[in-house]
């Protein structure tokens, strides 16, 4: 019964009278918040004092109107002071906003510039790569051509022209045979593009009796640009022939599809 004791102490009456210390006031306030019974007690003490003090008031003809006038006039008096302060604030505000707008504009312009430069840089880089590739290709092709040239000019090389046969009279080819190295270079520039599913096959021939030996399939025909293929040939060839064969080549040449043929002339 902590509350009952607290109420009976008489502190609440002094609280309403306003004679307690600040610390005591806060204690009472905390108790009022905590206990509904104490809060009720304080209200009743206050109500009694209100009634008693009101009974001592003389007949009053004052009303809230005059107070209202005074507090609203003190309120309207303030705006006379505020605008001056506002003007200064506004000026600063406008300057601030203007600076912000200019800064934003500048930033955006810089960003656009930066984007443009980046794009330009990217396309330049792409161009550079393409050029590099072209140079590389050109160099490679030049090297190949040089190599081919030296090979063909070698005095030990035997050139064998192959002429067109019944299937394709306009076709021609050349075989450069390096006997020392047991290699042949087949130039098939004069052959038509093989149809799909077919490949050219190069044969080394012995004439008496006729014995064909496959020395290679030109399955890279379409991909090779200078159309010169290097094949190994360790045969004692007397003639070379090129036939069109199904993909993967054949065991023996299909003579009906003999495109070119040429005999090795005696040295």
């Amino acid at each position: 019964m902590e509350e009952k004791e607290y109420i009976a102490s008489g502190i609440l009456e002094l609280y309403v009278a306003g004679v307690l210390s600040e610390q005591e006031n806060q204690e009472v306030f905390a108790m009022v918040q905590k206990h509904a019974e104490i809060a009720k007690e304080v209200s009743e003490i206050e109500a009694a004092i209100l009634k008693l003090t009101a009974a001592t008031a003389p007949v009053s003809n004052s009303s809230f109107t005059s107070i209202k006038e005074k507090i609203s006039s003190s309120n309207t008096a303030k705006p006379n002071v505020i605008p001056l302060a506002r003007k200064a604030t506004n000026w600063a505000t406008y300057t601030g906003w203007a600076a912000a707008v200019i800064l934003t504009g500048g930033l955006m312009w810089t960003m656009v510039q930066n984007n443009n430069l980046n794009t330009q840089l990217q396309s330049a880089e792409l161009e550079r790569q393409q050029l590099e590739e072209q140079i590389f290709k050109a160099n490679t092709s030049l090297a190949e051509t040089k190599k081919l040239n030296t090979t063909l000019r070698d005095k030990d090389i035997l050139a064998v022209p192959l002429s067109g046969q019944a299937v394709s009279p306009d076709s021609y080819a050349k075989v450069y045979w390096d006997k020392n190295e047991n290699q042949v270079y087949v130039d098939v520039q004069g052959l038509p593009k093989p149809p799909a599913g077919k490949v050219y096959q190069v044969w080394s021939l012995k004439l008496d009796p006729l014995t064909p030996t496959s020395i290679g399939i030109l399955d890279q025909f379409n991909d090779d640009e200078n159309k010169v293929f290097t094949l190994a040939n360790s045969n004692d060839s007397e003639a070379f022939g090129i036939t069109l064969e199904p993909e993967g080549g054949s065991e023996s040449p299909t003579l009906e599809q003999l495109y070119t043929l040429g005999a090795v002339s005696a040295p």
Binding site: V16, G18, N25, F29, I49, L50
Partner: peptide
């Protein structure tokens, strides 16, 4: 400030 006393008490003072 209500923690320092009743409003009536404040006005009374």
């Amino acid at each position: 400030n209500s923690s320092k006393g009743r409003f009536f008490t404040w006005m009374l003072n």
